[in-house]
Design a protein around this nucleic acid. Structure first.
Lengths: 120, 120
DNA sequence: ATCGTTAATCGTCGATATACGATGAACAAG
DNA sequence: CTTGTTCATCGTATATCGACGATTAACGAT
């Protein structure tokens, strides 16, 4: 279906590691309490600036900026400079896409595909 | 609903970091291509031993054992010693629970809760 | 008892994550 | 122009991850 549907390559687990695909990237971005909290906060407002998040979480501004960058690079959050501030907002479509991809993967694994070859 | 439904604490972002809750742990376990591959493989068989996974992925036995341990500690996989082997199998209920938790979180964030206070 | 297989663990090493303070750039306001 | 605010980035320190080889334990088979 979409690009998020069939990830995590079937072969090519080369030397060091497997390729960090889009799904893994999204999951990694989600796999930190602070970033989950940021996402939940962002989802409750139309947009906000970095400072708002800093006031919300008890983290240094640079740390929050880093977390926002990770969410940004994972495509879960959008940003547009707004004067000296930055407008951060969740990308609701991306969240839905990730939700679908993760749900598809987990439900397929839980549903016991008849043989392993089944792509989700 | 279940214990996985409402995680990621609303407050208490203490000093160093936020508490690594169950959801974050599950997401982290999922956020690696090799572990995704292991999950998908496990889901296609009733059970298997570590060696089977080693043959499937191109990773050292110790590395696979580590990944299995992470999946185990995240509760996504079950294990029971079977002679000199180990029977590994996906915990399909846990996968469904995690799927529900992640889906709930992401869909709630995508759906724009009226105010931030809304728990998913 | 010995050997081979399997798997868990230990120790190590490089890469990365996560946190922070400090710095610098961009901009608004005076 | 100067000042204050906001934010991204840099540099750094610490912790953890992810990979591996080596070792050890448990077990089956001979």
């Amino acid at each position: 279906m979409n690009s998020l549907a069939n990830i995590s390559e079937p072969s090519a687990p080369a030397s060091g590691c497997c390729a960090p695909d889009v799904l893994s990237r999204g999951l990694f971005a989600l796999a930190h309490p602070a970033r989950i909290e940021i996402l939940r906060y962002l989802s409750g407002v139309d947009y906000c600036c970095c400072k708002d998040v800093v006031c919300r979480l008890q983290l240094a501004q640079s740390t929050v900026s880093q977390h926002l960058k990770i969410l940004l690079e994972a495509g879960l959050v959008r940003m547009s400079p707004q004067g000296q501030r930055s407008r951060y907002a969740v990308d609701r479509e991306a969240l839905l896409a990730l939700s679908g991809a993760v749900g598809g993967l987990l439900n397929a694994c839980a549903a016991r595909a008849d043989e392993n070859g089944r792509e989700i």
